[in-house]
């Protein structure tokens, strides 16, 4: 028996969400007296892949193949399912990123495994196999019991620690064993956002709403984001009016995020918006309307005109950055 974890890489490096998934799997393995097997797929150097043992992987399977250098759902799912069977895995852990979301259901269907996404707890195995997940876009939690022998868990990024847990390196390097028929989608071009913090991975998010009056005032959001190494986001009306791209829209019908700090400027806090951001650890709300519903969900608030208070805040943030540079 083993606990298998998909160690997703981006251009040969492991992101924090990957390390969280490995540490999560290692903890589950420890609690169930089994071993944690991390599977890296792509072109990750063996020395890089070995780092996963620091986060508790008892065994690392490094699948190397030039054709797998960027993520492709179909072959990745097949490799993961094959290795799961070889390693007699009872639980397969992935991080609920875009890649994780596309691979998890495929692996589950291949292995006839029950699957839960958006997992925010370790499994409770005292009576069955129970995990907690978010539902209604963060408006509530649900406890789900999985009854199949094999289980797939897609865990929410920025929820679990990346506890260091040094294990002896045990790495197996292998080819994929796939043939051309396994590649049933063709990647034409990958465009990555550069020089910006990715919203879904950001620990700090600065977000603007209609209260900012127009896209020309977004420097108030961007300058603070720059000073705090944060990602930028916006409310639905803002993306609907094309002030900002849809890819920045957070909320129930946009992106659900869970940063350490969510900083909302000129956003009233409609229930649909709160659904997408309420899991943030700390929420700051700047709004000139003291009755804005967002204050009820906030940890810190300023009732005031964004155009007056934001320059002061940006200045203070720049000073803080300079002190810690």
């Amino acid at each position: 028996m083993s606990i298998l974890v998909f160690a997703e890489n981006t251009d040969g490096n492991f992101k924090k969400s990957t390390l969280e998934a490995v540490a999560y799997a290692a903890e589950v393995a420890k609690n169930t007296s089994t071993t944690c097997v991390a599977v890296s797929i792509g072109n990750v150097d063996d020395t890089k892949a070995e780092e996963l043992s620091k986060y508790g992987a008892d065994k690392i399977v490094n699948v190397k193949n030039d054709k797998l250098a960027t993520f492709i759902a179909e072959p990745f799912a097949k490799i993961l399912a094959n290795i799961s069977s070889q390693e007699n895995a009872s639980i397969i852990v992935v991080s609920n990123t875009y890649s994780g979301k596309s691979i998890a259901p495929k692996v589950a269907a291949k292995l006839k495994a029950g699957i839960v996404s958006g997992v925010i707890s370790y499994p409770d195995t005292t009576n069955g196999f129970k995990v907690r997940r978010t539902v209604f876009s963060g408006k509530a939690f649900a406890d789900v019991d999985i009854t199949t022998p094999i289980k797939v868990l897609a865990i929410t990024p920025n929820t679990f620690t990346t506890l260091e847990n040094n294990k002896t390196v045990n790495l197996v390097s292998t080819d994929s064993g796939l043939n051309d028929a396994d590649f049933n989608t063709t990647s034409i071009e990958v465009t990555r956002v550069t020089g910006k913090i990715v919203l879904t991975e950001a620990e700090v998010v600065i977000s603007g709403g209609r209260g900012l009056k127009g896209p020309e005032n977004w420097h108030l959001v961007e300058h603070l984001a720059e000073a705090l190494n944060a990602a930028t986001a916006c409310s639905k009306p803002v993306s609907d009016m094309d002030w900002r791209s849809h890819s920045e829209h957070v909320g129930q019908t946009g992106i659900t995020i869970k940063p350490n700090l969510y900083f909302a400027i000129g956003i009233s806090g409609a229930i649909q918006h709160l659904a997408g951001v309420s899991s943030s650890k700390v929420i700051v709300v700047i709004n000139k309307d003291p009755e804005a519903p967002f204050f009820k969900a906030a940890d810190y608030g300023i009732v005031g005109d964004a155009f007056e208070v934001m320059p002061k805040i940006i200045e203070a943030a720049k000073k803080l950055k300079a002190q810690h540079a």
Partner: peptide, 13 residues
Amino acid sequence: NSATIGFELPAAK
């Protein structure tokens, strides 16, 4: 292959 056992609302801030 799964069953939702119960729900909970997040604690009020």
